[in-house]
């Protein structure tokens, strides 16, 4: 039994990491003074030889992670998404990604749900910054169950990965028994009028929006795009061909993230009206997570509105 009801997405990661530590002595985790928040403290306590506390030095942590990986370890450096993607970007680019080091960057606090901490700690741009790096796999689980399976899957593949984890309790809705296939999106709901392609915490909201749209007589396909890179192009293209209108939804800027990836593909292969649900090129602010989500347009209502607009643009 994995998770049910409501659970922190990071807990799925933490549970999988514990199992990996147990089964494989080559699995190593690291923290930059955020072991508790990154949910690696239990790993550190249980496998002290396989854990490195790096202090407040994210760039150094990423470089050290690369060195460990180049010597054969499977390394999970952990920190907040905003630090992993922005503060440590050079070390990620050069030492991890250009080297194709077997490092799995597990970044918590992806998106805006960090809440009261405000814009400095909210990552709206991390998917864009990571997605642009050649050869980096970018994974955004939609709930704790998926985070668990995704963590096992990224550990099993060779190569660098950015695993984006959200904070705050979140509804658990994915199949706990289903293994995670990197790069293979999941159609959660069939529909023919509009395709909603969502990632991370917006997937459950996309399902809610599809329910509402059904009442309005609009049949929406809902896709859980848990892997931003490599993008499941087949799934996106067939969605565009079948529905002829697409909405993307992400807890991220509308620039450069999932929406960008989908637009790049469709503009070239299957021109289709697309509406983008996400943060509109702005920094965030402090507040309760739900208040921020609503204020910045990251709600099921906004997805529903975007779907109606997309359908009208056909």
């Amino acid at each position: 039994m994995l998770f049910s009801g409501s659970a922190d997405i990071r807990e799925g990661f933490a549970k999988a990491l514990m199992e990996l530590g147990e089964s494989n002595p080559n699995v190593v985790a690291m923290s930059a003074d955020l072991a508790g928040s990154s949910k690696v403290q239990a790993f550190a306590d249980t496998f002290p030889d396989q854990f490195f506390q790096m202090g407040i030095s994210e760039g150094d942590m990423m470089g050290t992670a690369a060195g460990l990986a180049l010597a054969g370890k499977i390394v999970f450096p952990t920190t907040f998404a905003v630090f992993a993607a922005s503060l440590a970007n050079q070390a990620v680019r050069l030492s991890i990604v250009y080297n194709q080091a077997n490092v799995k960057i597990a970044a918590g606090h992806g998106g805006i749900t960090v809440g009261g901490d405000g814009a400095t700690h909210q990552a709206f741009e991390d998917i864009a910054l990571m997605r642009v790096l050649p050869g980096l796999t970018v994974v955004v689980p939609a709930d704790a169950n998926e985070a668990y399976h995704a963590t096992l899957a990224v550990a099993a593949m060779h190569g660098p990965v950015y695993l984006r984890l959200a904070r705050s309790p979140h509804p658990v809705f994915t199949d706990p028994t289903k293994a995670f296939q990197i790069g293979k999106a999941e159609v959660l709901r069939e529909g023919a009028d509009v395709g909603i392609i969502a990632t991370g915490t917006m997937v459950v909201r996309a399902l809610q929006a599809a329910e509402a749209l059904a009442k309005d007589g609009i049949s929406a396909r809902v896709i859980n795009m848990h892997t931003i890179k490599p993008l499941d192009t087949e799934c996106v293209l067939s969605c565009a061909v079948d529905c002829k209108a697409v909405v993307t939804a992400e807890e991220h800027s509308v620039i450069g993230g999932l929406g960008g990836a989908v637009a790049e593909l469709l503009a070239q292969k299957q021109p289709t009206p697309i509406e983008f649900v996400g943060v509109q090129d702005t920094f965030g602010e402090s507040g309760e997570p739900e208040e921020i989500l609503t204020k910045y347009g990251l709600s099921a209502d906004k997805i529903r509105e975007a779907a109606v607009t997309a359908v009208q643009r056909k």
């Binding site: 490195f52 470089g63 050290t64 690369a66 060195g67 460990l68 180049l70 010597a71 390394v75 050069l94």
Partner: peptide
């Protein structure tokens, strides 16, 4: 080449990782 390099300030961190891995092994 044990690690790519060029942008300065990156190599010692990687060297530390290699040294830690040797110790672990």
């Amino acid at each position: 080449v044990e690690t790519s390099s060029g942008p300065l300030g990156q190599g010692l961190s990687v060297a530390n990782g290699l040294a830690l891995a040797a110790r672990l092994d």
